[in-house]
Simulated scan of single mutants.
Amino acid sequence: MKYDFIVVGHGLAGAILSYTLRKQGHRVLVIDEPRPSAASRVAAGLLNPVAGKRFAKSWLADTFIPAADAFYDELEQHFHQPLFIHKPIYKIFSSIEEQNTWMAKSAGTNWNDYILSTHTQSINQPDIDDPFGGIMIGRGGYLQVTEMLDLLTQEVLEQKLMLPERFEIEKLQLTEGGVRYKEDEAKHLIFCEGFQVVNNPYFKWLPIQPTKGEVLEVQTENYTPECIYNKAVYVVPVGNGRFKIGATYNWRQPDEEPSPEGQEELTERFRQITSQPFQVTEHLAGIRPAVRDRRPLVGLHPQYPQLSVFNGMGSKGVLMAPYLAQQFAAALAGTEEVMPEIHIFRYLSLYYDYIEQQNQQL
């Protein structure tokens, strides 16, 4: 069978990119081995416009958030069900020093689109420990990632546009007109493999750092507040007294096995936010594709233009993927350029080093 594109990987990035390409009229084959421990399915799907202890606006938030809103709205209409849950995020100050940092930061920046309110004292929500107050962040929320991936997977399976199997790279052939994989041909192939790109002979030179993240789901006594909490970890109320708590960051042990240490860290962080009694109902672990400079990795292979990569979004995929998928689709059509900040050519020196090492081993 002949296709315009083959997309390898159907996590968050691959699913959004393949849907974007299909909506533009391209014939797309998806190849993906379903794995419950895939990072996209483990994550809580948080979208937060304000990042980190330094209270920085998320990179290109003014660009990414409108695109994300439009994309998830379209997807909800397409499948006739809610997928993105809009909720304010209450970022709790951990100390007077942190409160002062925010007050100084907010004085010189226009935060009107994102900050709903600033609290220098507790907001007196039941069972919430916030003696130093915090900021209430708007335009955030969470994507029901597993539900979205299940719907998109079902759609491509029904249309016979998916091979639900492990991609065998040794069966990939590069041709004059594109690529051939087993019995299928395409003009172009895009790798959206997440951390597994470290085993890809065409793109293993990219500086991906596999980083383990663990998430808990806990049950309380039907306690469901109206906001997401953020203090060292996120606490996302998902209804009926259930919360998702995450995530840990562990680059020393990049495996997909939940650990006692991870559970202890997350439960302790949860206790620092709320006095609600709780019971752990699920403990999951996945591996993120973290990048050295915390920017995605997008672009065509330096030597083989029929191959490209769309990867490296780490914990920001829900925020960034809709806009970047649209931009990359336009770049593949020759109507737009991939922005330099995410283009893989910023690491071209690593590619040359990799080629030299390969030649020395011959």
Rank of each mutant, 00 (worst) to 15 (best):
M1F: 02
G9R: 01
G9I: 06
L12F: 11
A13N: 10
G14A: 05
A15L: 06
T20W: 05
T20Q: 13
Q24S: 14
Q24W: 13
L29I: 15
D32R: 06
R41I: 06
V50T: 09
V50C: 15
A51C: 09
G52M: 01
R54E: 13
A56I: 04
A56Q: 10
S58I: 03
D62E: 15
P66T: 05
E76M: 09
H78M: 08
L83P: 01
K87P: 07
P88C: 08
K91P: 10
E98N: 07
N110M: 10
W111D: 06
Y114W: 12
Y114F: 07
L116Y: 02
S122G: 13
Q125A: 13
P126T: 15
D129S: 11
D130K: 11
D130M: 03
Q144A: 09
M148W: 06
D150F: 08
L151V: 02
T153A: 15
E155V: 02
E158Y: 01
K160N: 14
L161E: 15
I169W: 03
L172H: 11
T175K: 04
G177I: 02
Y181A: 09
L189G: 00
I190K: 07
F191C: 03
E193F: 05
V198L: 12
N200D: 12
Y202K: 05
P207N: 03
T211V: 11
E214P: 00
V215M: 07
L216Y: 08
T220W: 01
E221T: 05
T224N: 09
T224K: 03
T224Q: 11
K231F: 08
K231W: 05
K231P: 06
P237E: 01
V238C: 03
V238T: 13
V238W: 00
G241R: 04
Q253C: 06
E256Q: 07
P260H: 12
E265A: 14
L266T: 06
T267F: 07
R269W: 10
T274G: 09
E282F: 00
G286I: 10
G286N: 14
R288G: 02
P296D: 12
P296W: 00
L297R: 10
L300K: 10
H301M: 05
P302E: 12
Q303Y: 15
Y304G: 00
S308A: 13
M313W: 04
K316W: 12
V318Y: 04
V318G: 07
A331N: 04
E336W: 13
E337S: 14
M339S: 14
P340Y: 04
I342C: 08
L348C: 11
Y352I: 03
D353P: 02
Y354Q: 13
I355H: 09
Q357S: 14
Q358D: 02
L362V: 08
L362Y: 04
L362R: 10
